[in-house]
Amino acid sequence: MLKITPYLGILVIVVAIAGLWYPILGYFMLVVFGTLLVISPLRGRWFCGNLCPRGSFSDFWIAKISQNNKIPPILRSLWIRVPIFLLMMGFMVYRLLQTHGLFNQIGMVFVIMCLATTIIATLLGFFISPRTWCTFCPMGTLQHILGKDRYQIQLKNDKCIACKKCDKVCPMQLEVRKALSEKDCIKCSRCIEICPKNALAFKN
Protein backbone atom coordinates (compact mmCIF):
# COMPACT_ATOMS: atom_id res chain seq x y z
CA MET A 1 0.00 0.00 0.00
CA LEU A 2 1.26 3.45 -0.91
CA LYS A 3 1.45 6.33 1.55
CA ILE A 4 -1.19 8.26 -0.41
CA THR A 5 -3.65 5.33 -0.54
CA PRO A 6 -5.63 6.27 2.62
CA TYR A 7 -6.34 9.75 1.26
CA LEU A 8 -7.61 8.87 -2.21
CA GLY A 9 -11.15 8.15 -1.00
CA ILE A 10 -11.95 11.87 -0.89
CA LEU A 11 -11.85 11.89 -4.69
CA VAL A 12 -14.92 9.64 -4.79
CA ILE A 13 -16.90 12.16 -2.76
CA VAL A 14 -15.67 15.07 -4.86
CA VAL A 15 -16.65 13.44 -8.16
CA ALA A 16 -19.92 11.85 -6.99
CA ILE A 17 -21.27 14.90 -5.14
CA ALA A 18 -19.57 18.04 -6.48
CA GLY A 19 -19.81 16.55 -9.97
CA LEU A 20 -23.58 17.05 -9.92
CA TRP A 21 -22.88 20.80 -10.08
CA TYR A 22 -19.61 20.61 -11.99
CA PRO A 23 -19.95 17.79 -14.57
CA ILE A 24 -16.39 18.37 -15.77
CA LEU A 25 -15.28 16.44 -12.66
CA GLY A 26 -16.72 13.33 -14.28
CA TYR A 27 -13.78 13.27 -16.67
CA PHE A 28 -11.64 12.24 -13.71
CA MET A 29 -13.15 8.80 -14.29
CA LEU A 30 -11.36 8.65 -17.63
CA VAL A 31 -8.06 9.27 -15.83
CA VAL A 32 -8.88 6.35 -13.53
CA PHE A 33 -9.80 4.07 -16.45
CA GLY A 34 -6.69 5.04 -18.39
CA THR A 35 -4.38 4.49 -15.42
CA LEU A 36 -5.69 1.04 -14.58
CA LEU A 37 -5.56 -0.03 -18.24
CA VAL A 38 -1.87 0.91 -18.35
CA ILE A 39 -1.01 -0.79 -15.05
CA SER A 40 -3.10 -3.97 -15.20
CA PRO A 41 -1.19 -5.81 -17.99
CA LEU A 42 1.95 -5.46 -15.84
CA ARG A 43 0.61 -5.89 -12.29
CA GLY A 44 -2.93 -7.23 -12.49
CA ARG A 45 -5.19 -5.71 -9.84
CA TRP A 46 -2.42 -3.66 -8.22
CA PHE A 47 -4.37 -0.48 -8.99
CA CYS A 48 -7.28 -1.76 -6.84
CA GLY A 49 -5.15 -2.07 -3.75
CA ASN A 50 -3.03 1.06 -4.14
CA LEU A 51 -4.54 3.78 -6.33
CA CYS A 52 -8.28 3.10 -6.58
CA PRO A 53 -10.21 5.98 -4.95
CA ARG A 54 -13.22 3.74 -4.28
CA GLY A 55 -10.99 1.09 -2.76
CA SER A 56 -9.53 3.72 -0.46
CA PHE A 57 -13.02 4.96 0.36
CA SER A 58 -14.04 1.42 1.28
CA ASP A 59 -10.96 0.62 3.36
CA PHE A 60 -10.67 3.84 5.33
CA TRP A 61 -14.20 5.26 5.38
CA ILE A 62 -16.77 2.48 5.03
CA ALA A 63 -14.68 0.16 7.21
CA LYS A 64 -15.43 2.38 10.20
CA ILE A 65 -19.17 1.59 10.01
CA SER A 66 -19.12 -1.85 8.37
CA GLN A 67 -20.70 -4.89 10.03
CA ASN A 68 -17.73 -6.90 8.70
CA ASN A 69 -19.63 -10.03 7.71
CA LYS A 70 -18.35 -12.76 5.42
CA ILE A 71 -18.53 -11.88 1.72
CA PRO A 72 -20.87 -14.39 -0.02
CA PRO A 73 -18.82 -16.64 -2.36
CA ILE A 74 -21.41 -16.23 -5.14
CA LEU A 75 -20.34 -12.61 -5.56
CA ARG A 76 -16.88 -13.79 -6.66
CA SER A 77 -18.33 -15.95 -9.42
CA LEU A 78 -17.89 -15.10 -13.11
CA TRP A 79 -21.63 -15.75 -13.41
CA ILE A 80 -22.06 -12.54 -11.44
CA ARG A 81 -19.02 -10.61 -12.66
CA VAL A 82 -19.53 -10.95 -16.40
CA PRO A 83 -23.24 -9.96 -16.54
CA ILE A 84 -22.58 -6.94 -14.29
CA PHE A 85 -19.61 -5.91 -16.44
CA LEU A 86 -21.66 -6.17 -19.65
CA LEU A 87 -24.67 -4.44 -18.10
CA MET A 88 -22.69 -1.47 -16.78
CA MET A 89 -20.58 -1.03 -19.89
CA GLY A 90 -23.65 -1.32 -22.09
CA PHE A 91 -25.55 1.24 -20.03
CA MET A 92 -22.62 3.65 -20.07
CA VAL A 93 -22.22 3.40 -23.85
CA TYR A 94 -25.98 3.87 -24.31
CA ARG A 95 -25.98 7.01 -22.15
CA LEU A 96 -22.89 8.40 -23.89
CA LEU A 97 -24.55 7.99 -27.29
CA GLN A 98 -27.48 10.04 -26.01
CA THR A 99 -25.23 12.99 -25.16
CA HIS A 100 -24.61 13.77 -28.86
CA GLY A 101 -21.04 14.67 -27.95
CA LEU A 102 -21.94 17.55 -25.61
CA PHE A 103 -19.02 18.07 -23.22
CA ASN A 104 -20.94 18.65 -19.98
CA GLN A 105 -23.43 15.87 -20.67
CA ILE A 106 -20.62 13.38 -21.22
CA GLY A 107 -19.09 14.44 -17.92
CA MET A 108 -22.44 14.02 -16.19
CA VAL A 109 -22.72 10.42 -17.45
CA PHE A 110 -19.48 9.59 -15.66
CA VAL A 111 -20.60 11.47 -12.54
CA ILE A 112 -23.86 9.50 -12.38
CA MET A 113 -21.97 6.23 -12.86
CA CYS A 114 -19.64 7.19 -10.03
CA LEU A 115 -22.50 8.21 -7.75
CA ALA A 116 -24.56 5.08 -8.45
CA THR A 117 -21.69 2.66 -7.91
CA THR A 118 -20.59 4.54 -4.78
CA ILE A 119 -24.06 4.17 -3.28
CA ILE A 120 -24.06 0.44 -4.06
CA ALA A 121 -20.53 0.02 -2.70
CA THR A 122 -21.45 1.89 0.49
CA LEU A 123 -24.57 -0.19 1.15
CA LEU A 124 -22.73 -3.46 0.52
CA GLY A 125 -19.80 -2.23 2.58
CA PHE A 126 -22.05 -1.39 5.52
CA PHE A 127 -24.19 -4.53 5.55
CA ILE A 128 -21.51 -7.04 4.52
CA SER A 129 -17.83 -6.04 4.31
CA PRO A 130 -15.97 -2.89 3.14
CA ARG A 131 -14.57 -4.47 -0.03
CA THR A 132 -17.70 -6.40 -1.07
CA TRP A 133 -18.12 -4.26 -4.20
CA CYS A 134 -14.56 -5.05 -5.22
CA THR A 135 -15.33 -8.78 -5.51
CA PHE A 136 -17.41 -8.13 -8.64
CA CYS A 137 -16.32 -4.63 -9.68
CA PRO A 138 -16.27 -4.47 -13.50
CA MET A 139 -12.96 -2.63 -13.52
CA GLY A 140 -11.44 -5.14 -11.11
CA THR A 141 -12.60 -7.99 -13.33
CA LEU A 142 -11.10 -6.29 -16.38
CA GLN A 143 -7.78 -5.81 -14.59
CA HIS A 144 -7.62 -9.48 -13.73
CA ILE A 145 -8.31 -10.46 -17.33
CA LEU A 146 -5.60 -8.13 -18.61
CA GLY A 147 -3.06 -8.96 -15.92
CA LYS A 148 -3.74 -12.71 -15.63
CA ASP A 149 -0.91 -14.21 -13.56
CA ARG A 150 1.31 -11.13 -13.36
CA TYR A 151 2.73 -9.95 -10.05
CA GLN A 152 1.44 -12.80 -7.89
CA ILE A 153 2.15 -13.41 -4.22
CA GLN A 154 4.83 -16.02 -3.63
CA LEU A 155 5.00 -18.06 -0.41
CA LYS A 156 8.24 -19.37 1.08
CA ASN A 157 6.91 -22.51 2.74
CA ASP A 158 10.03 -23.05 4.81
CA LYS A 159 9.50 -19.70 6.54
CA CYS A 160 5.72 -19.78 7.02
CA ILE A 161 4.61 -20.56 10.59
CA ALA A 162 0.86 -20.63 9.77
CA CYS A 163 0.07 -17.77 12.15
CA LYS A 164 -2.67 -16.59 9.76
CA LYS A 165 -1.93 -12.93 10.40
CA CYS A 166 -2.00 -12.44 6.62
CA ASP A 167 -5.57 -13.73 6.43
CA LYS A 168 -6.72 -11.35 9.14
CA VAL A 169 -5.49 -8.22 7.36
CA CYS A 170 -6.59 -9.17 3.83
CA PRO A 171 -9.32 -6.68 2.83
CA MET A 172 -10.67 -9.17 0.28
CA GLN A 173 -11.09 -11.88 2.95
CA LEU A 174 -8.78 -14.32 1.20
CA GLU A 175 -6.95 -17.24 2.77
CA VAL A 176 -3.66 -15.86 1.55
CA ARG A 177 -1.57 -19.04 1.72
CA LYS A 178 -4.23 -20.96 -0.23
CA ALA A 179 -4.97 -18.22 -2.74
CA LEU A 180 -1.60 -17.22 -4.15
CA SER A 181 -3.02 -16.99 -7.68
CA GLU A 182 -6.45 -15.78 -6.61
CA LYS A 183 -8.07 -13.33 -9.03
CA ASP A 184 -9.36 -11.26 -6.12
CA CYS A 185 -5.89 -10.41 -4.77
CA ILE A 186 -5.57 -6.62 -5.06
CA LYS A 187 -1.80 -6.50 -4.41
CA CYS A 188 -2.17 -4.16 -1.44
CA SER A 189 0.88 -5.70 0.30
CA ARG A 190 -0.77 -5.81 3.72
CA CYS A 191 -0.14 -9.53 4.07
CA ILE A 192 3.51 -9.03 3.16
CA GLU A 193 3.94 -6.16 5.60
CA ILE A 194 2.43 -8.03 8.56
CA CYS A 195 4.17 -11.37 8.02
CA PRO A 196 6.55 -11.88 11.01
CA LYS A 197 8.80 -14.25 9.05
CA ASN A 198 8.99 -12.46 5.68
CA ALA A 199 7.48 -15.54 4.08
CA LEU A 200 5.50 -13.61 1.45
CA ALA A 201 6.70 -11.56 -1.51
CA PHE A 202 5.51 -10.50 -4.93
CA LYS A 203 6.81 -12.40 -7.94
CA ASN A 204 7.09 -10.38 -11.16
Rank of each mutant, 00 (worst) to 15 (best):
S181T: 13
D149T: 12
M29G: 01
C163R: 11
P171H: 01
A162L: 02
I192S: 12
G34V: 00
A179R: 08
H100L: 11
N104W: 05
Y151M: 03
T132W: 10
Y27L: 03
I74P: 05
M89A: 13
L96C: 01
D167Q: 04
L86S: 01
G49M: 10
I65K: 12
I128L: 11
L8P: 09
L2F: 05
F91K: 01
R150I: 05
S66P: 08
A116G: 03
T132E: 08
Y7Q: 06
T118N: 13
Q154C: 04
K70T: 15
L11Y: 11
K3Y: 03
I62T: 09
K3C: 02
I106G: 13
I65C: 00
M88T: 06
G26K: 10
C114R: 03
Q173P: 02
G55L: 03
I161R: 04
I128R: 13
D167R: 13
G140D: 04
P138S: 10
F28W: 08
N69F: 12
M113E: 09
I192D: 00
I39E: 10
P196H: 15
A18W: 06
G147R: 08
F57I: 08
V31N: 03
F33C: 13
P196Y: 07
F47R: 06
P23Q: 09
E175F: 04
Y22G: 07
A18I: 14
L180V: 10
F33P: 12
K159V: 06
W79T: 05
L87Q: 06
K165F: 09
